[in-house]
Design a binder for these strands. Structure first.
Lengths: 108, 108
DNA sequence: ATTCTTTATCGTAATATTGCAATAAAGCAA
DNA sequence: TTGCTTTATTGCAATATTACGATAAAGAAT
């Protein structure tokens, strides 16, 4: 059907899935990686860095913003984007219990 | 178009996106969390734990297997699933550079 | 005022995803 | 063998996603 049955799952499960889904496209990974390598917020260069049409990049930025993974501030003519650290902290916390298991010996 | 233009992005970016996408559904998050709370591999109870039809659960398990996030071994009548620790290690390593940034003060 | 730059939105087409009923396949139980 | 249990696969319908051209909106530059 294409529609996800969120209602059967916990808020935490839906939240983690939503963040993971937002990161689940190479263009959005590229945007996040680009932002993470810049010391400050990035104004107006994302469209030049991502090899997709401007409309498509804008759409991906919108999704990342909706998921809370990035922030966008209007700065005169252009828009400055940066990582939303608070959301990334939550993302990290949600994955940590599973990542912890990778430090232990394999069970089977 | 629904089709993703992978070829414009690096293998690393595509790999990370693929893992994130595999986790980008609450049912798949629920499956992973269930497996992560069991001490050993889980044989035949996943269908009872996930509130979706058997065919749908099977489909989600297939996607997780394809992404390498879980392993499935035939055990007589049923199939035993467990987390694929090696892939989770890679997943962790790929996210670590971004997660590291959450430990620093916000830039702007 | 007009033009340029930058980003968002709309409309559309192609493809992917989600979900389930029905059915198949493969082993166990009687 | 016959039936039961468990999981996979097929086929289908409904919805979501991806991508882009065209256009709008808003400020900057001339």
């Amino acid at each position: 059907m294409g529609i996800t049955k969120n209602e059967h799952f916990s808020k935490e499960q839906n939240d983690l899935a939503y963040l993971a889904k937002a990161l689940g496209h190479p263009a959005r990974v590229a945007i996040i990686e680009y932002l993470s390598t810049q010391a400050n917020c990035v104004c107006g260069s994302i469209v030049d860095v991502i090899p997709l049409a401007q409309a498509t990049v804008s759409q991906h930025l919108k999704e990342l913003k909706q998921a809370g993974l990035i922030l966008g501030n209007v700065e005169g003519n252009s828009i400055c984007y940066c990582l939303n650290i608070e959301t990334w902290k939550k993302f990290k916390q949600m994955l940590e219990p599973i990542f912890k298991l990778t430090e232990q010996p394999v069970c089977c």
